[in-house]
């Protein structure tokens, strides 16, 4: 059990995919202007990455490895992710329209969110079992969402301050993200 806790805290603070590995910056910068959109995107990301970690493990273990096709991982995984996102979108539309309304607009964007592909590729190279792999996907995406929500709150606060005009938009957001990464830096080397 503690093994899972360590993974979870690690992805939340120390190995945070956004703050520590600078992946997923497009959605991190793009949908963080408002808390509500950030929340929608975050939830959709958790949903898709957890599912994608599960499915790509199966694909890797039963399709790629037996035939020595590891070098096809990138192609196979991105296809799985794209198809998965499509299916999730259709399934939600039919079965859970409420959830679809909340997450629907974010789903197509997730295919090109590099955290998804990054997490699944990392999982594959770490050679874990199915449960751990899926949990890693879940923890990494929760870490992503955590950073995204914190950043959205900060940007909503900054929107009310008197920043110089030339800090508006990306420059200010990038520098704010940099300062935020300093705060995450304190957790480097965290081990239990």
């Amino acid at each position: 059990m503690s093994e899972y806790l360590v993974v979870f805290i690690g992805y939340l603070l120390m190995n945070n995919y956004v703050m520590g590995q600078t992946l997923g910056l497009c959605p991190f910068m793009g949908v963080s202007k408002r808390y509500d959109t950030a929340k929608g995107m975050g939830m959709a990301v958790i949903f898709v990455i957890t599912l994608a970690s599960f499915v790509t493990w199966l694909v890797n273990e039963y399709l790629l490895l037996p035939f020595g096709l590891e070098y096809m991982q990138t192609i196979a995984f991105i296809l799985v992710i794209a198809v998965l996102v499509q299916i999730v979108e259709m399934a939600l539309k039919k079965m859970l329209p409420v959830l679809y309304q909340a997450l629907g607009v974010y789903l197509p964007l997730i295919t090109t969110n590099c955290v998804v592909l990054g997490v699944t590729l990392d999982n594959a190279s770490a050679e874990m079992n199915l449960l751990m792999s899926t949990f890693c996907g879940f923890a990494a995406s929760v870490g992503f969402t955590f950073a995204l929500l914190l950043f959205a709150c900060i940007r909503e606060k900054l929107a009310l301050s008197k920043m110089p005009k030339w800090m508006d938009g990306f420059p200010g957001a990038l520098i704010a993200a940099g300062l935020m990464a300093i705060a995450f830096k304190g957790f480097s080397g965290l081990s239990f």
Binding site: K162, M163, I175, G186
Partner: peptide, 19 residues
């Protein structure tokens, strides 16, 4: 750069120290 006194979201002295 974030708007002067009261607008910064991190403590200036501490951030500088960490930097």
């Amino acid at each position: 750069m974030f708007g002067g006194i009261g607008s910064n979201f991190m403590n200036p002295a501490l951030t500088a120290r960490a930097f």
